[in-house]
Design a protein around this nucleic acid. Sequence first.
DNA 1: GTTGTTGCAAATACTTTGCAACTAT
DNA 2: ATAGTTGCAAAGTATTTGCAACAAC
Lengths: 127, 127
Amino acid sequence: MKEGMRYTKQRLAILQQIESSSGHHDAESIYTNIRAKNLNVSRATVYRTLDMLDKNRLIRKLDVGDGRIRYESRKENDHHDHMICLETGDIIEFFDEELERIQDKIAKKHGYKVIRHSHQLFVKPIK
Amino acid sequence: MKEGMRYTKQRLAILQQIESSSGHHDAESIYTNIRAKNLNVSRATVYRTLDMLDKNRLIRKLDVGDGRIRYESRKENDHHDHMICLETGDIIEFFDEELERIQDKIAKKHGYKVIRHSHQLFVKPIK
DNA sequence: GTTGTTGCAAATACTTTGCAACTAT
DNA sequence: ATAGTTGCAAAGTATTTGCAACAAC
């Protein structure tokens, strides 16, 4: 963490919670899971901490478009995008080198550089 | 529109509002602009109508990730994605054939077909 | 001891909903 | 006439904020 920041049990618990499962966690489930372990946190702290962890690039923020923001670990810091199954709600991760390259090319053509991107495929199983 | 649906002045006003400017409108500005013309609408109707217009593919829904959903016309029904400038908030449209092709390929590889997708580049001007 | 952090409760922002009144067909 | 649509106000959901108490350094 950066200068002047403190390691509190709440922060560690939140980070652990996210790194525990390599899944896609939302604020409420993080809050509930920590409380279930009889550790004390408030929703306010969860939200504030998630924001701070994201800004410090310790976790990754993920807007699936359903009104609840998800967060995932950056431990295996392989960048990837997501495919969301419209029938089951499953979230599948994917990565494609070419896709990344094309994005940069498009931005450049317009005089911009890509800082980050959000790319989701909403899919259904074949057949 | 589909069977059993009615043309009301509210619906037409909302659709016109969106088609008036080929921009990226949010619910609140649509509501305000219609009211400014002394036409009567409620926010409830705006939200209900936007939802219905999107489902009927008369407009396109667009989640920029800032908490306010945008809607755009489908009149020139060229599909495109968006690039959002982090410095100015400008929204630039782009389309790339290859990008589309790769997305389908990726989904297929996992046993899915793409129903729709959401692809945004968050960018900054070069230099 | 100082400064960052927390918990609480209240506030905010956007969107949705129940229901009775209304209106397009 | 009747079924779809509207407006209102209340409710809902996710998130943010002010502030006094508290804990890390």
